[in-house]
Design a protein around this nucleic acid. Structure first.
Lengths: 202, 202
DNA sequence: GTCTATAGCCTGATAGAC
DNA sequence: GTCTATCAGGCTATAGAC
């Protein structure tokens, strides 16, 4: 349509963003230089400024680009089919799998929790959280009407996210076994805890 | 005994560490310069090198110093008095209060999850987690013997930590109310969820 | 759209006087 | 134990050729 006809084996701008995403995920905004990004994309630093106004703008676009990946997959897990328990199970399995597969996204989210300004946090809300959060709030009200839905949804995300956030340190903590990194094991544990707690009267 | 007699209104080394802790908590290792730290401590950058070999060593000592604060208070919450449920409640209330009061420690922990090398993660384990984790593993086995104790303890920490990690972004998410930042509300929510889950058969 | 070259500033770190 | 002065290199960003 308006796009150039030659096979764009990879748009330069997109390649820059792709490489920038993994650098920012690993080292954060202050830990990555424009030289690093240019080198990773196979161009000179000056060329970056043809595509992006400055480092901040490049970073913001990289976040936007990172959030787009797999957005469809995340939303597919929220289909209203089945009982509330089945829907919870499906949703948790999907985000556990997503966080396990796409660790850059998870790292970028963690860094935004720490360093995101209001603009970037709003972007994260709109592009990643909002739709999932709304659907989960409704699910929370049918699963556990005695709970505050906002707190319950945060707790569900927290149970999943924290396992991944602590991947490196868990290996140094008592009782660690390799299976604790298995997405299926994590998902089953989290779902069971949300549904039943530790109560022995099941 | 071996200490100098004059009233040390605040040891320079300790003042440096104190100011470095809050700078590193707010901006991370790469986001803080030796000049920033020197200025915050009211000395010149060169003087920092009399007290610490280099930036890395200063950072490591700052972590060590940050972890010492309130270690006693954290352990006091683990006294074996009362039923397992009462002990859980006491422990959660204490770490919620601790994280709410001492936000620098929480920020530093989040940053170490992301950027800590093995040495610094081991330090965090030994100085902050180990004793709490051991005691909580025992508590987990009496509370919910059907659960993997390591996963259950991570889940307990995660439920608490994630609420604080997301303080900035939660305000932009659906259903947020100011009381969600109240330590008592958070603690009660977390304890109830761990004990009962969302099951309506209580 | 990418390059070379470079301006102007900030960085970690050191030398040596006091 | 802190200072002034400084080095060598890294940083973001720009100018201008191709």
């Amino acid at each position: 349509m308006g796009r150039p006809l030659q096979a764009p084996d990879l748009d330069t701008r997109e390649l820059i963003l792709k490489r920038a995403i993994s650098l920012f995920a690993r080292a954060g905004f202050a830990g990555v230089s424009m030289r690093d990004i240019a080198a990773a994309a196979g161009i000179t630093p000056a060329a970056l400024y043809h595509h992006f106004a400055n480092k901040q703008a490049l970073h913001l676009e990289a976040m936007r680009h990172a959030y787009e990946q797999r957005a469809d997959a995340r939303l597919a897990a929220l289909a209203p089919e089945g009982s509330p328990e089945e829907r919870l199970e499906r949703f948790v399995a999907r985000i556990v799998e997503d966080l396990h597969t796409n660790s850059d996204l998870r790292l970028l989210m963690q860094r935004e929790y720490l360093d995101g300004d209001e603009q970037r946090l709003r972007l994260l809300v709109e592009q990643v959280f909002r739709k999932q959060f709304d659907a989960l709030m409704a699910l929370a009200e049918s699963l556990g009407p005695q709970y505050d839905p906002h707190l319950l949804v945060i707790s569900i995300f927290g149970l999943v996210m924290y396992h991944f956030e602590t991947t490196a340190i868990r290996r140094l903590l008592p009782g660690y076994r390799a299976e604790h990194d298995n997405p299926t094991v994590i998902a089953q544990h989290v779902v069971h805890l949300i549904l039943h707690g530790v109560a022995r009267t099941q």
